[in-house]
Amino acid sequence: MTETDVKVVYKRPLGFTDRTTHYCPGCTHGVAHRLIAEVLEEMGELKNTIGVAPVGCAVFAYNYFNFDFVEAAHGRAPAMATGIKRTLPTKTVFTYQGDGDLASMGMGEIIAAAARGEQITVIFINNTNYGMTGGQMAPTTLPGQKTSSSPLGRDVETQGYPIRTAELLATLDGAAYVARRTLHDVRGIRLAKRAIRTAFEVQKQGLGFSMVELLSICPTNWGMNTENSRNWLAEHMLPYYPVGDYKVSTAVSEMKIGGN
């Protein structure tokens, strides 16, 4: 093989800084970050993007992406993104939020942003618990699932039922594209990337609100190694939170995606 035949097939995306992330080993936050960085790079949007970080394990996301970023108050990222997007409508604006942030603290803000058809993209990490604060029950915690604040397992009689966010937001006319994907295996990750690309294209073409929910693992708070976490996700989360496209508006279904 001559030198010119050497082909780089895997490299650090241009959208990343050279900081090492603080995420636990095996955590899929890093995978989600990478997919976003790759998509924005492929779309040529890196210089035109403003990210909104959540309060949760991804609170320092702005240390890892190398474009403009703001850090929201807990749950308020969609409102903050609205303020930015309305002021600078030609920018690509996205929020990155966990399930406690988006579906508990910020349920009002996310529903309102989706209903307004806000031209923003939301990447939503569903790991069935509050990772950052030590694994408490989240709105997404499954029935019977043990967490540090539901030590006997989530009792639906007193603690209610999990929220299926993608299905919920899909009912809103302002939402143009709402999908759920999983990060627990390679095929899932590939499909997740395609959905993230679609979501950002929807925004670029001004078709409305877009959100991709990503089923994720939290090995640390689940108390499992990475492999068992992935299996647990497949076995327990996938049946409750089926992957799929929950909302594809007519305009989105007719949308042409450049590149890939």
Binding site: A73, R76, M80, T82, G83
Partner: peptide, 11 residues
């Protein structure tokens, strides 16, 4: 809450 956080983003 929404309003002040929109202002936060705009600012």
């Amino acid at each position: 809450l929404g309003a002040i956080n929109m202002v936060y983003g705009a600012a």
